[in-house]
Design a protein around this nucleic acid. Structure first.
Lengths: 108, 108
DNA sequence: TACCACTATACGGTATCACTGAGTAGTGCG
DNA sequence: CGCACTACTCAGTGATACCGTATAGTGGTA
């Protein structure tokens, strides 16, 4: 699938929030997970900017832990604000995708 | 529904292309149509920037016609490049929305 | 030892897009 | 005359994903 960059704006952050919500994890692993899930072109740099933003906006709790196979990892977990943001994301996504699908069906 | 701005990136242009594809129409009317379809916060200025971009990128054919109730209207119709872009948009949308839905279901 | 691959994060800069706000202009109605 | 509605333009803003480069730890191999 060619360039999804623009379409990912607003949604990629939501995907990251969702992954963190299902399991406390770190940037490198999140990137690999997204790649598996079909977001094949997403690279580490993109995810790290999102994670730093989440941290700066107070949506996550961060824990640094040694790795054994490389530099220490920063594990992320959602706090209450993060879970709220995630819920809002899904609401927006449902709203938008339903409108788009309706538009496609030619309905009004 | 509160701010959808970021999530609309990449998709709003596709919606405009779709509307133009179903009927030769103009900016003001496209805005009203989108408002009816649930994109309640979309305003004229946003649509005009998209239309000018489509024109600049050679995806539409433009015809100016007098209105009777105001300044002349610029009617837009898709050309071959525009129809191709629209098809690509739907492919991307299907791809993205299927991945997001799968992510939400917790599937892999 | 030296080199490379893989793991892991940070950060300055860029492009693109939706959006804002201000301006111009035509018609009709009180 | 002023106001509402119609209709378009354009310079500037903010948010986001992405790129390129840098740094650093571990382990394998020549």
């Amino acid at each position: 699938m060619d360039d999804l960059t623009e379409m990912l704006k607003g949604t990629l952050e939501g995907c990251v929030l969702h992954i963190i919500d299902t399991e406390e994890t770190y940037g490198y692993a999140i990137t690999r997970r997204l790649n598996e899930l079909g977001f094949t072109d997403v690279v580490e740099g993109t995810i790290y900017t999102i994670l730093l933003r989440l941290e700066k906006n107070g949506l996550v709790q961060v824990t640094k832990r040694p790795s054994g196979v490389g530099p220490p990892r920063k594990f992320y977990a959602l706090n209450d604000a993060g879970r709220e943001r995630l819920a809002t994301f899904w609401e927006k996504w449902e709203y938008l995708s339903s409108r788009i699908d309706k538009l496609k069906e030619g309905g009004r």
